[in-house]
Design a protein around this nucleic acid. Structure first.
Lengths: 334, 334
DNA sequence: TTTCGCATCGAAAACGTTTTGGACATGGAC
DNA sequence: GTCCATGTCCAAAACGTTTTCGATGCGAAA
């Protein structure tokens, strides 16, 4: 069907060896022959078959991007898109392709991430948004397949990670609230099986103590990273402790839900309740009042992950754990 | 390095033919032999090489998802994410993989989309967010490679499309505004090289005339689909025609910019200026006031595109043009 | 006994490349 | 005249599968 290197060879009256060398720019081929081969390849509209090439070179120059359920994690999109862009740019810069695989796919086919990737001979994999307790992710981390995970501090022989310094991020949030005079500070954390949440909690508690405040269980709640979850958690805190004057949320989406709820029960923001989120998603600028937050460098996370992976692949560099500094973005909600 | 079918054959004391047949569930292999082969394959941790398999079967079961610049089109994300999810689900359901290729990649490597896809032997391609005047997309459309484009009405032998009925969407918007008593209605369109914009413009003008109103060039502007662009366009309209009482925007993002600008110059929404957008991105619910808009079925668009492509691939169905009905979502801004 | 069908298996070709290990000719140095 | 280096080329192996075609053995039918 398609025109192969053999067709080109025949038409040019040379061997396929020569065609291959001419096309790939090897030195030992006569300039005139090369010219003719190139010309004929062009004429015949020849396109090298990368599948065949991959088979013989044992290189696909493809990395898998593993993301958990697209559909479900609606909220994750705000975070994910930028990371995705960063990963993509990083890979593209070094000539690697990106294969998108979601956990729904693998689950549907009853195959582990690792098997899926090794069958396709991916050269490496970038993992994002996977639960801390997902057994399959540990399988790839412990495998020989080079990988870097985003937002999970998993380090091994062939696996690095990049994440935001969530502990310090949470400390910044607390320090900011304290500097605004708050003493009774609430905290709405995300799901406990997300690695970022244990860090943010630690940062919150550390930060409180650093300012001579005692983290109070009555002021702490957990939610599922959604607007509704944030609202519900806020309601519980407000009912239990009407004296709360500020709340730190482990995600912007929850913070937005919190603001809604607070306004609904008659609190003004920031006068009656200061609110600070985490992530710095685009939404922050659009809500009323604009949301103060701890910003993650999302694009850089993706870019950094891709760069690390490519370093492992192309230069045999060892994997590392990379911590990106968050930055406090003050808007009107505090 | 990796364990091959040959290793399994050797260990099981059978030919590779038999191993292949045993693993793939062919009938003519003794149940006992099959059991042994399966067992040994499991023991050796054998994973079939899909690259080799693709080479011989001439099927990669991979489709390319072509998106224009990730990084640049920040706004497109709100629209794209859902479409992406739909495409992904559709493909996954039928056992197809998804290779993400952005136009930045191909441009960087100086290769056309079509060449990129044929070299990798993709079985089909889904195109989204490409400019109407991009020459490379036409190359794909006119090629033998099965494709379906989103948001561009390009139909050919091997290329279908799916898009929202933008003309009617715009008509809905006008009808809604008219029903609210508006007569002097502005229109901020997007970039002229986007196919959706010519339709939305036509829908706007048709809708106006249908209600006995004359589309007035003084009330019409173009912007670049961004918040800032929407704001600037709004400023120009408000200066030129202070008597305008409602504006229809070809995208939510621009509508949000418009609301900001209007509020800044002292207009109340919706009392002094009614605003309606297009797309129904998540943001609509979060801005103040919540934005009335013409909703696109984003997920369905992606799903439908994937289904059509797979129909072409697996059942040799002909490509079609599919129009998805938009729906009016009334919130507080009108 | 011959014939036939059936169940089970294997040898070898094929997919489209890259790469190895020469072959061959030419020309200059000795 | 021999030797060697150099430039140009090719045959064949290899990558890891699937698939075609045929071989073999065995039991039942004729």
């Amino acid at each position: 069907m398609a025109v192969t290197i053999r067709d080109v060879a025949r038409a040019a009256g040379v061997s396929i060896t020569t065609v291959s060398r001419a096309l790939n720019g090897y030195p030992d081929v006569n300039p005139e022959t090369r010219r003719r081969v190139l010309e004929i390849a062009e004429q015949l509209n020849y396109r090298p078959n990368q599948v065949a090439r991959s088979l013989v070179t044992q290189h696909t120059r493809t990395v898998g991007l593993l993301v958990s359920d697209f559909t479900k994690s609606r909220g994750g999109m705000y975070f994910m898109y930028d990371v995705l862009a960063g990963v993509h740019d990083g890979l593209a810069q070094h000539g690697y392709d990106m294969h998108l695989v979601s956990t729904t796919t693998t689950r549907q086919r009853l195959v582990s991430y690792l098997d899926f990737c090794t069958e396709r001979r991916f050269e490496g994999v970038i993992v994002m948004g996977i639960r801390l307790d997902d057994p399959y992710v540990h399988e790839v981390v412990e495998s020989k397949l080079p990988s870097v995970v985003i937002d999970l501090p998993l380090l091994s022989e062939r696996c690095g990670y990049v994440m935001t310094d969530n502990v310090n991020g949470a400390r910044f949030a607390v320090r900011h609230l304290v500097s605004k005079g708050h003493r009774t500070i609430g905290f709405v954390n995300g799901v406990p099986y997300a690695a970022v949440c244990v860090d943010r909690r630690r940062g919150f508690e550390d930060g409180m103590r650093a300012h001579g405040l005692q983290p109070d269980p009555e002021l702490m709640e957990e939610a599922d990273f959604t607007v509704e979850g944030g609202a519900a958690a806020t309601r519980r805190i407000l009912e239990r402790r009407p004296d709360v004057t500020a709340i730190f949320y482990a995600s912007d989406l929850m913070a937005i839900g919190g603001m809604r709820e607070a306004v609904k029960v008659g609190r003004r923001i920031p006068q009656d309740l200061a609110v600070i989120g985490f992530d710095n998603i685009d939404l922050c600028e659009f809500v009323q009042p604009a949301l103060t937050t701890v910003g993650q460098r999302k694009y850089e996370m993706g870019k950094s992950a891709a760069d690390m992976l490519i370093g492992m692949l192309d230069q045999n560099l060892p994997p590392e754990g990379r911590m990106l500094a968050p930055d406090l973005i003050v808007r009107r909600s505090t």
